[in-house]
Design a binder for these strands. Structure first.
Lengths: 155, 155
DNA sequence: CGGGTCATTATGGGATATCATGGGAATTCA
DNA sequence: TGAATTCCCATGATATCCCATAATGACCCG
């Protein structure tokens, strides 16, 4: 299905290397896609994805008034993005800037959310998950329309 | 009938493996579907399903403001979800995290509820069933409207 | 109707492969 | 030439595969 799912907690070694979870690598390799990582606009975490997702963001910004402040804000995602090289052992090298931005300290948590994933400081991610679960029980789960899926092309 | 039905109580061995009930496997195999398992948002149990349900969640999130609270709650399902590999003997390996989350201890109860199923600690599931039956007799049952199913190809 | 055989399923254990991770050597770049 | 990066190999932990066994139920045939 080619989705990034599940969470993985991996170590960052002295050289700044970290293993990309094997299942995420498999998704990228199946599509012959390079991996892009950029700083989240809204959280102290990193975002990872393939090229399609980057294109989507570019296209969305191109639809906007390119001189607007909104467009400029979204552009910060793009210029923080880097194409990551993955070595023969499946590891990437996290630049110091990324490590600092996400507050990483020796270990990082990969959190797959479908077509993209996030990289968090493990304790922060845990807090978020606990928070979401509490809200889900108190306020209920968002409506999910189950049942027949729309045909492709159908609205 | 491609539905998950009935309940099965199976053992979890020392390695964390458990047999997926044969009838559930048959459903998945007929559709050539992999099996996904994720932590319930609202109960101390696991949920199992095929890829359609995961796609629904992904698509639903993509339609929403991806920074909204609702989207984040749905993302909790995704990052707790895993595609399970089923070995040649029909077993899957339950990660320690799943076992702990559902409070499993040696045995797990599969509970088929149609297009998905749940995995419970057996005694908790029993309590739930007794509770629901009692409420049904005391408070009556919810309205159940069984409409005609659309013909294949009919809108 | 009874008894035996076979297929299916759940489960256990040992062998094998995969993965994350650490460290050193080689290479690149400034 | 020094620092940073990439490549290569070693290792332990874990996951996966493969085979064996037991229990159950379906099936067939006398």
């Amino acid at each position: 299905m080619d989705l990034f799912l599940s969470t993985y907690e991996n170590r960052i070694d002295g050289k700044g290397r970290i293993s990309v979870p094997a299942s995420y690598r498999a998704v990228l390799e199946r599509n012959r896609s390079p991996l892009y990582i950029f700083k989240s606009l809204t959280h102290a975490c990193l975002e990872g994805c393939g090229p399609e997702r980057i294109s989507q963001i570019v296209d969305a910004i191109d639809q906007m008034d390119s001189l607007s402040e909104e467009a400029e804000i979204l552009q910060t995602m793009l210029f923080s993005a880097q194409e990551m090289k993955i070595d023969s052992d499946g590891r990437m090298l996290l630049p110091a800037e990324f490590i600092e931005f996400a507050g990483l300290d020796g270990t990082a948590l990969f959190s797959g959310i479908g077509r993209s994933f996030q990289i968090w400081r493990p304790d922060q991610h845990q807090r978020r998950e606990a928070d979401f679960r509490e809200r889900a029980t108190k306020q209920g789960v968002p409506r999910l329309t189950l049942g027949r899926r729309p045909e492709p092309g159908e609205r």
